[in-house]
Every structure is written in C-alpha cells, then in structure tokens.
C-alpha cells in the first residue's frame, strides 16, 4: 500500500501570545491509501487543526504534510484543494443554489460543460442515496439534516478526489439518522476506495468506520491503533476515553443500581 497522506513532525501554534499556544505538537502520522483513519480526542485537542493542514486551510508552523508523496507547501493551492473532498458538520451548502448545482459546483469551477455537470451530479446523488428526480431541484433549506449531509458528501465526491476530509460530518444528526449515514458511508468507502480522514467525537462511529484510530491530547499524538487494538489497549488515556463513553450504559444496567 502506498501513502496517501503523511504528516512529518507537524506543529501548529497560534500567534496570540509570543510563544503561541501549541495546537499541534510534533505530529507524525501516515494515512495509507484507501483506508479510513478516525481522529478522536477532546475538544481543543487539535483534531480539526490537523485535518485542516491537509488541504492547507491552515499552514503548519513547523513540519511538513505530504500528499501522495509530494510536499504540499509549494503546491498549487487550487489544484490541491480540488483533489481533496471536504465535508463538515455545518455542511456549508450554498443556500442560493439548488442541490444539483451545489453538487456540481466544483465541476463548474473547473469549467466543465453544463450537461456533464448535471449528469455527474445526478449520478452522485444516487450514490449517496438521494433520488435525483425530486431532490436535484430542491434547495438546501428544503432538506432535512441527514439529506443535507448526503448532498455535502456528494459535492465532496464530485471531482473524484482520492482523499476525503470529514470534520464531524454526522455530529449534528439524531442517532438513527446518524446510523443510516454511517452505513451508507461504510458501503460507499468499501466501493470507492478513498483515503478518509475523519474527525469525530463518537467512539462507536470511529470503531465502525475506521481502519486506524488516532487519539490526540493537547496537540500530541497519544495513540495510532487498529480498532481492535484500541479497545483492548491498557494505555491509561485510551482506557479513560473509552470509559467516559459508555458511562450511561453501565449505570443503567441492573448490577450497577444495586
């Protein structure tokens, strides 16, 4: 397997104080092509910051990010970004465009003819489980939260990127919709073989979707393990993270109430 993304000793500091606050502290990490990597960690641990260095929405203060073996520091920004899909919790759908145009916007920016864009966006809507017949002409405000995320995902896939960045894509959805989206995403990733970097707060989601699980704490990489190793780990940070997750379930079991 080849490397889709490589972080080499990546640090990122804010410039608020003279020394800056270190949001990322010497992260080294490799994402193998075609795999999904989930990043876990508490809020402010640097998950989103790390994700945003891949498409240069943020430039690392130190260290390098390599995409498919190439250092992106000198890369053409527009070309780099068009080759990387981006999905966020707020979806960021364009409220003034219908679904079809939202999905095809990257192709529009590349100057592809209208007929091709429409064909491709209908194809993609079907891929993410939305029937183009009613949905292509709708506007974002006419969609439910889950439908909006599907459109956001279709849009991210439009230019056939090899890499997909997802920042808490399903964080705002109810558990049932979220489960549907996770099923859809898992099927899709098995077929499309994209390299996915997924930021999430949801341990179950990470275990369900990812091949590798990365835990960050205060900008440092604490663990980088396969899901099976992650749940079996005796490392204190991992144990306390997992315990924090299933407290409700434990306290509601009959033994716990005795």
């Amino acid at each position: 397997m080849s490397q889709a993304v490589e972080f080499r000793n990546v640090s990122f500091a804010t410039s608020v104080t003279p020394q800056g606050r270190l949001l990322l502290d010497g992260i080294s990490l490799t994402l193998e092509e075609g795999t999904t990597t989930a990043i876990l960690g508490r809020s402010g641990s640097g998950k989103t910051t790390l994700l945003r260095t891949v498409n240069r929405m943020l430039e690392p203060t130190n260290g390098d990010v390599l995409v498919r073996g190439e250092n992106i520091r000198g890369a053409n920004l527009i070309q780099l970004r068009r080759g990387i899909g981006y999905v966020i919790q707020e979806t960021g759908l364009f409220p003034h465009f219908n679904v079809e145009r939202n999905v095809g916007l990257v192709l529009e920016a590349q100057g592809q003819p209208r007929a091709d864009r429409i064909r491709r966006s209908h194809e993609l809507l079907a891929t993410v489980g939305l029937d183009p017949a009613p949905f292509a002409q709708r506007f974002p405000h006419q969609l439910s939260g889950g439908q909006r995320q599907r459109v956001g995902l279709a849009r991210a896939l439009a230019a056939e990127p090899k890499i997909l960045l997802m920042d808490e894509p399903f964080g705002a959805l109810d558990p049932l919709t979220r489960a549907e989206m996770q099923d859809m995403l898992r099927d899709l990733m098995a077929r499309l073989k994209k390299t996915v970097l997924l930021v999430t707060h949801d341990l179950d989601e990470a275990l369900f979707l990812a091949h590798r699980i990365v835990l960050l704490d205060q900008g440092k990489l604490i663990a980088n393990l396969a899901p099976r190793e992650f749940v079996a780990s005796r490392q204190p940070e991992i144990v306390s993270y997992i315990q924090a997750f299933h407290r409700g379930e434990r306290s509601a079991t009959p033994e716990a109430t005795k």
């Binding site: 920004l77 981006y86 920016a109």
Partner: peptide, 8 residues
C-alpha cells in the same frame, strides 16, 4: 470555508 476548501 467550504467554497475555499473545494478549490474555488
């Protein structure tokens, strides 16, 4: 943010 990230 998304418009930028998608390479507009």
């Amino acid at each position: 943010e998304v418009a930028r990230a998608l390479g507009l």
